[in-house]
């Protein structure tokens, strides 16, 4: 009993899922990049995206930016602040933790996340902060089969494709990229060859946090403004990066698309309202509100048990 309208709806949800996945991909690639180069698992990734989203609110306060040009300046300024934040975090917070146990770094990033979200909460409160009108994209791109993709999702898809391609080319063909790869695969050997590990790690942090900030801004644009729930992205992208293989940037991209799809499909079909009915047993699949966010986490658990190194991750073999 699948009607044409149903399949158009399904296609629309899939398109939105891919769009959302592309937004997640930006944050997820930031995570994978930093893990690949420095070995730090940044559990504060969602909060960094949150800070990025609210930077635009801060810089583009209210009516000051009504023209698209000024709004674009606010976004650009947010990105620049993101770069500075990356360098600052590396210098002040993460450098002392080079060579420390995994647990210490994990707790530091978790605490950092708490500080960021608490700070945003303190400055802006729990309320939804509307973006300047110039940044609320009300256009959408029509697609075949009656679906359409909202403007911010379209930009996100394009931007994340560009970034994933640029990063791969950067790692493959530039000198800095080679240095980053060298530092990632063997820090000591790279040092012996005259590579400055400090500078390399600073570059990695700046890149990662910039991408994440852009992701946060786009996430906020897709819902018309910044809200505190952006920080939940941090846990959702863990599912994406683990699925893709922790240290693989294309893997993070693919994983994020899958996670975005799961989230959209899950929240449309499995949360009641439009819940689907299981074909054989005839039970309505209604897992209650918020299940869309939980579905990626279930994927994460399955992946960790079944294929812990993900799609493209480096399998680590330990020997005595």
């Amino acid at each position: 009993m699948v009607s044409a309208a149903d399949s158009v709806t399904f296609f629309q949800i899939v398109v939105e899922g891919v769009g959302l996945g592309a937004l997640y991909a930006l944050v997820a690639m930031g995570f994978a990049l930093i893990y690949k180069v420095t070995g730090v698992l940044n559990f504060a990734q969602g909060e960094i995206a949150l800070v990025g989203a609210y930077l635009v609110v801060l810089l583009g306060a209210g009516a000051l930016v009504s023209s698209p040009l000024l709004a674009a300046v606010a976004v650009a300024a947010a990105v620049v602040v993101g770069i500075l934040l990356g360098v600052l975090l590396e210098r002040v917070v993460f450098r002392p933790f080079i060579g420390e146990p995994v647990l210490s770094v994990i707790i530091v990033t978790l605490a950092l996340g708490g500080i960021f979200s608490g700070f945003v909460n303190f400055l802006f409160g729990q309320n939804f902060q509307r973006y300047p009108d110039a940044l609320v994209l009300d256009w959408s791109v029509g697609l075949p089969l009656g679906a359409s993709i909202p403007g911010s999702y379209a930009i996100a898809v394009l931007l994340s494709l560009v970034i994933v391609a640029a990063l791969m080319l950067f790692f493959r063909y530039t000198v800095t990229g080679s240095i980053l790869r060298a530092a990632a695969s063997d820090e000591q050997a790279a040092m012996v060859l005259g590579v400055s590990i400090e500078r390399t790690i600073a570059v990695a942090w700046a890149l990662s946090i910039t991408i994440t900030t852009v992701g946060g801004v786009l996430l906020a644009m897709s819902s018309g403004g910044a809200s505190i729930s952006i920080k939940d992205t941090g846990i959702i992208i863990l599912a994406a990066v683990v699925f893709g293989g922790l240290d693989s940037i294309p893997g993070a991209f693919v994983g994020a698309i899958v996670v975005g799809l799961l989230r959209e499909l899950g929240s449309y079909y499995l949360e009641g309202g439009t819940a689907v009915v299981a074909p054989v047993v005839d039970v309505q699949l209604n897992f209650g509100p918020g299940f869309g966010n939980i579905l990626p986490l279930i994927l994460l658990l399955v992946v960790i048990v079944v294929k812990p190194y993900g799609l493209f991750g480096t399998e680590r073999i330990e020997r005595l």
Binding site: L41, V102, L103, I235, L238, A239, V242, N293, L301, I304
Partner: peptide, 14 residues
């Protein structure tokens, strides 16, 4: 190591 950290963090959110 951190895989257990990630999976239990997921448990916390679930």
């Amino acid at each position: 190591g951190f895989y257990i950290a990630i999976s239990t963090l997921a448990l916390q959110f679930i």
